[in-house]
Design a protein around this nucleic acid. Sequence first.
DNA 1: CGATGTGAAACGGTTCACAGCT
DNA 2: AGCTGTGAACCGTTTCACATCG
Lengths: 220, 220
Amino acid sequence: MSTAPAPRREIPDATVARLPVYLRVLRTLLADGVDVVSSEELAEAAGVRSAGLRRDLSYLGSYGVRGVGYDVARLADEIARELGLTQDRFVAIVGMGNLGHALAAYSGFATRGFEVRWLVDNDPAIVGTQIAERCVVALEELTRQDPDGLIVVIATPPAQAQDVADAVVAMGVRSILNFAPCVLTVPDGVEVRKVDLATELQILAFHEQRGRDDLREVNP
Amino acid sequence: MSTAPAPRREIPDATVARLPVYLRVLRTLLADGVDVVSSEELAEAAGVRSAGLRRDLSYLGSYGVRGVGYDVARLADEIARELGLTQDRFVAIVGMGNLGHALAAYSGFATRGFEVRWLVDNDPAIVGTQIAERCVVALEELTRQDPDGLIVVIATPPAQAQDVADAVVAMGVRSILNFAPCVLTVPDGVEVRKVDLATELQILAFHEQRGRDDLREVNP
DNA sequence: CGATGTGAAACGGTTCACAGCT
DNA sequence: AGCTGTGAACCGTTTCACATCG
């Protein structure tokens, strides 16, 4: 028996993807001692249009003051709350190759509210060693942990990525960031985001080529 | 005097962003000895809908055979050509911290048609050393190179990213992949794509939280 | 017959322009 | 007077459904 649909504000995916950028800019402003900002200024700093910014923020509620602007601290808090960042979140990085190794040492996670709590690899020669002051464990070990709110970063070769995904989904993980250049298949309710470095370069290569062709048209 | 507009097919950005995925899948199929594939099968392997896949491919031209499917080798070639991958492309990685170091050693670039040709850092202690069998040079040195078709990967701390961008834009670079968590301002005609790891985690955190809330509604 | 290629409808997101509030 | 919040128009993309053709 399904009741009325949840009255929760449905925030568009495109907006969600921009909230982290706004948050980062707001925190920079805060550090600079700015305490009120207009949609125009914030949009400029975030690289978006002011109308779009106001639309995005309107999904969170009315936190601006007409004729004045937005309270920087207040808005930062609201966005952080909406993103679920009021509680610290934990990250497990699976695959201690070049990339996993660098991610383990990357300071950008900790400074933005994420604690890298587990480093995982299945190579017996690596399990038990220390990387970035953290002990590397086997996947088996990770799957015994509490999956609640845990984000798993997959940095294995593509051939093993699906197996890792299956294993962590089975333990209850519902958020995966995939660096392996392959498509992951997961059940509904599990969110996968992918970062494919070669794909990004290929997209740039396309525009690079198109740009050159355009120049030829004008100036053959 | 401008003549008739170029008859070039205008490929939507959304399609361009998927072409690299199709290409990767097609090359896997090729390696497995598959030589014909239907839109249904290819879409499944690429994680998209078959109708969308057919629409995407239609922008490249009619390379399918009705009642049969697509020739794998032919289609892979067409996509590679469209992406400008028939010529090898060069990459410069600027910033030899953790991330830059890992990217320099990452084999995923070379295997997908990109040669990492320059490693750049401005720390005198690092310039001149070898990383992944390549000598690290100063930014100054990079700016004397031919920018044509060069893609610059920025992996510096955010405070230096804009300066690096300005310098490489000035030398004529028109494609930048930015790993620094900040907004880059560049002139028209320069393409910037960004990869922000913490942002990806924050987007996942949002869905993670929403998922938990949804569970509570059903099962409080 | 079977799978492609594509009009047409549906959708989600962006932009415009201004009403509404401080 | 000034800036936010938003209805409405607009635009790009996705999906449907089927005519088309090998």
